[in-house]
Design a binder for these strands. Structure first.
Lengths: 169, 169
DNA sequence: CTGACTGCAAACCCTTTGCAGACCG
DNA sequence: CGGTCTGCAAAGGGTTTGCAGTCAG
C-alpha cells in the first residue's frame, strides 16, 4: 500500500469521525471499525463484505449494526451509494447511447442525450482495468416532484430519510 | 404521446422482437406483452412495476415469468440494468469528485479521476427535471480478471451468465 | 409433436424491526 | 446516569427454483 493511498485512507477516516462527532453520533467500538474498513477500501463493498471484514476485528458484530451504521452515515451525507439503488433491479431497453438523471429521493430515472457526454474519451488508466464497452453519465439530484412534496426544511441532510418506498409516478 | 415517442417505442419493440427471434427464443403471449411494456416506458421500471403493468393485459402472468424474461433479454444483450446491481447496496466513502469503472461480469468497481469528465456541463434540459447535485461517469466493461477467467468463447453474448454470485477479490 | 415456456408454491436470501441489555459521553 | 446503540431473533420482501402442465414453432 503506497503512502498516497495510506494518507487518503487516513483522511477519509478522519472525515468520517469528524462528521459523526459533529452530528452527535456516538463513536462506539463497532462504528469505529466500520469506519476504518470503509475508509481503507477502494472496492465499494456491499454490506456483507464489510460485515465480514469488520467481523475479523470485532467477532461479535452483527449484520444489522453494519446496516444501521451505513445508513446513518448515508443520512449524514458521509457516504454515498452506487446507482439508483432504490429497490430491485431496474431495466433499460434504450439501446441508443444515452445518459441518466437520477432522483436520489424517489429513485426516478430519466434518459437524456448529450453529444459532449457521448463523445467523452475514457482515460488510458481506466482501459488498463479491463475492456470498455460504454460510458454513461449519471446525474444525481432531487426531482421537481420531490422538491415540492416535502418543502425544504433541511438544507443539507439528516432528516427526510429517502430510503425505501417513496416512489410516485 | 408524440409521434417521435411513438416511433421510438415501435423501433424498440421491433428490436426486441427481432433480437429474440434471432436467438430462437419463443415469442409467447406473455413475452410479447413484457416487450411492449419495456419498449413503451421511459421510466426504467423495476420488476414489480413491470409485472403490474403487464398484469393489466395478461391477468394470469406471474412475477417469475417477468424475471425470467427480463434476464433472458439481458443475457441476449437486448436490455441493460442500471448501476452495478450485482447484489445488495454498495457504499462509497470517497468524498472527492470521481468516476467509476464497473465490470459487468463480476461487479467490480474502481474509482478514477478525469478532469475532463468532472468538468462536464449538465444540459439545461436536464436541469428542468430537478436539482443537480453532481454528475458521475460510469464506464462499463469486463475487467482483466474476468477476461482471463473465462477465455472468450462468446464474442457477443448469450453464454457465461454474469448474474449473481461471481465476485472474486 | 417436442422442447421451451409458464404458473404455482416453496425455498432462499438479503434487509429491517422490536426488544432487553450494554455502553458512550 | 440517560439516551443511544448493540445483538439477537423473528418478521418482511424481493428473487429464484423445481415441477407438472401448456404452448409456440
Amino acid at each position: 500500500m503506497s503512502n498516497k493511498t495510506q494518507s487518503k485512507t487516513e483522511a477519509r477516516l478522519r472525515l468520517l469521525e469528524a462528521g459523526a462527532r459533529k452530528a452527535g453520533v456516538k463513536l462506539t467500538h463497532q462504528r469505529l471499525e466500520i469506519f476504518r474498513e470503509l475508509a481503507a477500501t477502494v472496492e465499494h463493498p456491499d454490506v456483507d463484505t464489510l460485515f465480514r471484514a469488520v467481523q475479523q476485528r470485532v467477532p461479535t458484530v452483527s449484520v444489522d449494526t453494519v446496516y444501521r451504521t451505513l445508513w446513518r452515515l448515508h443520512d449524514l451525507g458521509l457516504v454515498t451509494t452506487l446507482g439508483p439503488q432504490r429497490d430491485g433491479v431496474r431495466f433499460d431497453a434504450n439501446r441508443e447511447p444515452h445518459h441518466h438523471y437520477v432522483c436520489v429521493r424517489c429513485g426516478l430515472v430519466r434518459d437524456f442525450e448529450s453529444a459532449a457526454m457521448s463523445a467523452l474519451r475514457v482515460p488510458d488508466a481506466v482501459k488498463q482495468l479491463g475492456s470498455v464497452a460504454d460510458a454513461q453519465v449519471e446525474v444525481r439530484g432531487v426531482c421537481k416532484q420531490c422538491q415540492t412534496q416535502r418543502t425544504s426544511a433541511t438544507p443539507g441532510r439528516s432528516k427526510n430519510p429517502p430510503r425505501r418506498g417513496t416512489r410516485h409516478e
